[in-house]
């Protein structure tokens, strides 16, 4: 019995030493940040800024590896199947990892069992934009206008269960407004119809529409976050406009395969937090309308959990499901 305990202890010790040793020598080869979307998208842009920051801190080549396909599933599975050695990391967030399993019971990945959150890296706000000829200028005016026309207004989204779809659902739940959901493929197609007056409102990602708003092509009524966006200081938040506790941001974080050792996780998370706090990162992210966030593993894990619970409630209340 004693021998068993000793052996076990020795093994554990050896394992621990090995693990620390791994963490000590890490990184000794190129690190791959897998972005499960094509280049040029928001995940890719954030991934590249973070890759540059990590490169400087870890003294190791960090490449962004775009693995698009099946709405992010292909790239995510790539990381899940990789060795948990810290050389394959995933840039993932609300839209790709939290919302899809909530609305699709057949979603092929069990995120909790296959991935481990490492740290939060960035977020951006959504803006409530309307057609520029719609006779409303504030959120309250919009609510009154919509309530006078129940079920007659349309809102666009980038697909069922997308963050801009569920944000609109949340808005309807909190205000009692009823609107029709018109899903689109990809981010920009709905903007064309918003400008043409075929749909009336979209809760769109700030990076894609900030130019449209500044040029007066669409009207911004409010931002969805608890704070005002630096790019649009004159646009109020939805909460300021009288809808209590309305706080939605789209966020992104770094994930690794499930069995990533705690030491490695801590080392990567520490580097990521440093990157997020670096003013240079902030400046680069801001030009593309993002905001860095410095959530370490613990904060990020509980944040992901709270986001999951909150959106689950929205999804369940609205009855949003892929299979009717």
């Amino acid at each position: 019995m004693k021998r068993v305990v000793t052996t076990l202890g020795a093994l554990l010790l050896a394992f621990g030493v090995a693990a620390t040793a791994v963490a000590d020598t890490y990184p000794s080869q190129t690190i791959r940040l897998v972005v499960p979307y094509p280049p040029g998208g928001v995940s890719d842009l954030v991934g590249r800024v973070v890759a540059d920051g990590l490169k400087a801190r870890l003294n190791q080549t960090v490449i962004v590896d775009n693995k698009p396909g099946a709405s992010g599933v292909i790239g995510t599975q790539d990381v899940i199947r990789s060795k948990p050695d810290g050389y394959s990391l995933l840039v993932g967030g609300l839209g790709g990892l939290v919302l899809p399993p909530l609305v699709d019971p057949k979603f092929p990945i069990d995120i909790d069992k296959t991935l481990t959150p490492i740290a939060g890296i960035a977020e951006f706000v959504n803006v409530m934009i309307v057609n520029k000829d719609l006779p409303v200028n504030t959120v309250q005016e919009f609510i009154d206008y919509a309530k006078a026309r129940p079920g007659q207004l349309n809102f666009g989204s980038t697909g069922i269960g997308a963050s801009n779809h569920l944000t609109a659902e949340l808005f309807m739940q909190k205000t009692g407004v009823k609107m029709e959901h018109i899903p689109y493929k990809g981010g920009m197609a709905s903007l064309n119809d918003l400008r043409g007056g075929n749909i009336h409102v979209v809760f769109e990602n700030l990076p894609t529409v900030v130019g449209q708003i500044k040029a007066g092509a669409v009207k911004a009524l409010a931002v969805t976050s608890a704070y005002r966006a630096e790019q649009l200081p004159e646009v109020p938040t939805i909460a300021e406009s009288g809808i209590k506790d309305f706080n939605v941001t789209s966020w992104m974080g770094m994930y690794g395969p499930k069995n990533l050792s705690p030491d490695l996780k801590a080392k990567i998370a520490a580097a990521l937090v440093e990157v997020a706090r670096d003013p240079a990162t902030k400046e680069r992210l801001q030009t593309i309308s993002f905001l860095p966030v410095d959530r370490d593993t613990e904060a990020f894990t509980s944040f992901v959990k709270s986001e999951h619970d909150r959106w689950k409630q929205v999804v369940d209340t609205a009855g949003v499901k892929v299979v009717e």
């Binding site: 099946a70 699709d104 697909g159 069922i160 899903p183 892929v322």
Partner: peptide, 8 residues
């Protein structure tokens, strides 16, 4: 995947 419903 169907765009409107997410159905395969």
């Amino acid at each position: 995947t169907d765009v409107n419903s997410g159905y395969q």
